[in-house]
Amino acid sequence: MTTPEQPADDAAALAAIGRTWEAFWFTPAGSRPLALVRMAAGILGLLAGGTYAQDLTIWFGPAGLLPVETVAAWRAPAAVSLFDVCGTTTAVWLAFSCLMLLFGLLAIGLLTPVVSVLAAAGWVSLLHRGPMLAGPADDCLAILLWCVALGAAGEHLSVDAWLHRRLGWAGPRPRVRTRLALGLLQIHAAVIAAAAVLAQLKGDVWWNGTAMWWLTTREPGRVLNLVEPLRQSEYLCNALTLGIVGWEIVVAVGLWFAPTQRLVARGALVAWPLVGLLVAEPLWGVVMAVLSLPFAGLLGRSCLKQAG
């Protein structure tokens, strides 16, 4: 049964949703938090790219284990890689060195609008050259780089900003595209945490609290050796396992509410790297921390407050 007031209520609800959407995505935002993300993304690019360096020739060289034809047949049909055209060892190294240079330029913020797009495209190209080698840190770093490319990430803490001041050009200003980049960072920070929880809740080991044991006793890539303490204390094993799941739930939910956003984001700067160490994915842990970085309010008001 409907009442005369109901259509008006529906219209008001729709208008409220519209206003919230508008405020979240289209309120011009300052780019100082995104500058921090840009610097971190550049450094993370150097670190993640560095893990390819030692085996670059054996994987992607002309007589390597992963020839272009095999990878092209193996990967998704839509995937493409600029590295596919590198037919010699020199060309592979040249392309790789250019990518590392781009990450260096991104970290210092030189020619940021161009460099950020090239770095994102270059990184994705490297991943698609050998998708079977790529993992969580690589996947999430790609998202980070595209968000940096979308926003005005070079307006602060950069060589670009210094040059602009020296030349007397227009200074930084709040922009919608920066707000879009920050909004996407927030969405991904929460979605990735939620997706991890969903995946974990499908496995018995995350319910019975022994997942940490199986993660710790797998040696390749292990950073922390907790075998002995976990063997001695089942409670510790359970606490760490359930603690990881609990933390992911806290991030997936807590980033969306003004009272908890800053606290969760600041906690993320410590907790995600720790989780990364525990699960033998340290770079992934740092990338996850960087996704939450703009909301920690380290350089002033948090992004949610700016939007509101």
Binding site: P136, A195, A196, Q200, G203
Partner: peptide
């Protein structure tokens, strides 16, 4: 990758 990574299974 679906954010459904290998380590999240810990099998």
């Amino acid at each position: 990758l679906g954010f459904d990574y290998f380590f999240t299974y810990a099998q």
